[in-house]
Nucleic acid binder design. Structure first.
Lengths: 223, 223
DNA sequence: TGAAATAATTAGCCTAGTCTAACTCTTCGG
DNA sequence: CCGAAGAGTTAGACTAGGCTAATTATTTCA
């Protein structure tokens, strides 16, 4: 194996694009996600295909092989355990952990991750509410949280899961005091791609585009 | 700044060679320490000189600038705090921490290190007994331990500081159960570059070449 | 002190990962 | 169903960090 952090980032990008977009991953998707030009992507896809980490058909798209998916799941495990440690023991804020974990995930050994998991008590989810793959890289069952888009006006909920990989989304939510544990009331779920909510801590109405609200997981407060 | 891990490793090597060998650091010293060929060293020395991290005079040798030394002290701080964390919280053995810390030291942010130091209680030394530079990169006073070579036969001592950067030395000491906290009796300090000691845990005599014994720091047990 | 031995540098090549410019598929609209 | 438009690939160049082979400094010692 012995993969460069750069190659690992391409595999991660393919992994997330596969699940998020639901369609074959195209060169331009990756080039946009990683902010590199498309010829650069093409040449890396050749490499990943050769190493049997991805199946790449020129002009047609790319998908991960089982081996490629394994590499990504180990990275996801590293990342989410690191985030848990950073928040619980080093007092990082939920919006600050991502960048640190994104760098370190490539450099910790499997041994480190095993020991860190034991130290943290083998957690099944990270502080953003995302599931942590176990030592055999099995992803726990889908999170039991409900997307914010599924609630009705006046529902009172607790936020359990927040999207945080996009720095702009992260900054916006953080600025409006929406994070794991936030209590809020759903104000409106509009068909024009907008959800408005009122965090109880601020009382100020916050507008969320549907693509963001859909990725906020919450639990109804049975008041 | 924004230095590659590779460039950082060259700076570290120069730092240690400066203090250990006491003479101007030569190309071949570095090439041996890092296991690269000498032309490779020459070209990196050009780069470091250009970046004002080292003063390099062709054919004459190289020494760190203040900026170069600062970079190294930050790495040393990262390294020793990481080792402390790995041993105290993740149950790594003293002989196993080095490699993990050596990789991670290049990738943790200053913010991470600040927070880790706070979490660990701002320790002044690491578990090998080596001093940890403070947040302003000042190295604490020299360690108060006495080199094993300064003791006399029959002296009873506790080991406080062990050399651990060389894997062979590390393996040897570890195999003979000599580590931080080990109690032992000095058997002989021979003029032919040999010190023999008897750890009380095993009772078996262990021979140490002077260059190793000189770097083992110990404290007399006032029995 | 001068030649041999040793150390260091220069020259030139390689790979990974990046870019721009130019060319070639695919796809979609008329 | 064919020709732009747009997406993707190929060609060729660049940088960092390696290497080997050849050349040049320095040092040592007879």
């Amino acid at each position: 194996m012995d993969l460069s952090p750069v190659a690992e980032d391409y595999l991660k990008a393919i992994y997330y694009l596969e699940t998020e977009n639901g369609r074959p991953v195209r060169t331009s998707d990756i080039s946009e996600a990683l902010d590199v030009t498309s010829p650069t992507v093409t040449s890396m896809l050749d490499t990943l295909d050769e190493r049997e980490l991805a199946n790449y058909t020129p002009y047609q798209g790319v998908e991960l092989t089982d081996r490629g998916r394994e590499v990504v799941l180990q990275l996801v495990r590293n990342h989410r355990l690191l985030e848990t440690f950073l928040m619980e023991y080093l007092d990082y804020s939920w919006s600050a952990v991502h960048d640190e974990a994104d760098r370190l995930e490539h450099h910790v050994s499997d041994e480190f991750t095993r020991r860190l998991a034991a130290f943290l008590g083998e957690p099944a989810t990270d502080p953003h509410g995302d599931p942590i793959p176990d030592a055999d890289l099995r992803m726990p069952d889908e999170s039991p949280y409900t997307p914010l888009t599924e609630f009705e006006p006046d529902d009172r909920v607790t936020v359990e899961q927040v999207p945080h990989r996009d720095p702009d989304v992260r900054e916006y939510l953080s600025r409006h005091r929406i994070g794991p544990g936030t209590r809020l009331v759903v104000e409106e779920v509009s068909p024009i791609d907008l959800v408005t909510v009122v965090p109880s801590s601020t009382g100020a109405s916050v507008a969320l585009p549907t693509h963001v609200a859909r990725r906020i997981g919450a639990r109804a407060v049975t008041k």
